[in-house]
Computed example of a mutant assay.
Amino acid sequence: MVDHLVFFAVKEGASAGEVEDLISSIRGLKNEVPGVVDLSVGEDFSGRSGEYTHALFARFEDAAGLQEYMGHPAHLAVVEKLGATTTGRIVADYEF
């Protein structure tokens, strides 16, 4: 199994509608991209995430599934939205 973690910071000037559209688009990837075993995204409520406001978790059967996800048009569209709506991201992928 492979886990894909993304932490991102929403721009201060982003509207509630832009953020909801981004989150909805990310959630849609679970059903749009083959190979996604599980996917969740949400806003941090702990206050311990530093500059990062949201986190994304996605799980795949193997590294090939992650690679398919990375190149899928639906994922690439979400990456564009992330670029327009966020100020920073950190990504970690690991196999277990």
Rank of each mutant, 00 (worst) to 15 (best):
G17T: 04
G28Y: 00
H75D: 06
T87Y: 02
P73I: 04
V41F: 02
R89E: 08
A92F: 10
P34R: 13
V2I: 12
S49L: 11
T85D: 06
K81C: 05
R48N: 08
A77V: 05
T86Y: 10
A16I: 06
E51G: 15
S46Q: 06
F57C: 03
D62V: 08
A9S: 13
R27M: 03
F60I: 03
D44T: 06
G35V: 11
G65Y: 00
G83E: 11
G42T: 10
E95L: 14
A64V: 07
Y69C: 02
G28L: 02
Q67K: 15
R89H: 13
Y52H: 14
D38E: 15
I90V: 15
E20T: 06
L66H: 04
T87G: 13
E61K: 13
V41S: 00
Y52G: 07
A92T: 12
G83S: 08
E12F: 04
Y94P: 03
G88A: 13
V37T: 14
L29Y: 05
G65R: 04
V36D: 05
E51S: 13
T53G: 00
D44C: 10
A63K: 10
D44Y: 08
V79S: 04
Q67S: 15
A77C: 08
L56P: 02
H75C: 07
T53I: 09
V10Q: 01
G88Y: 02
A77Y: 00
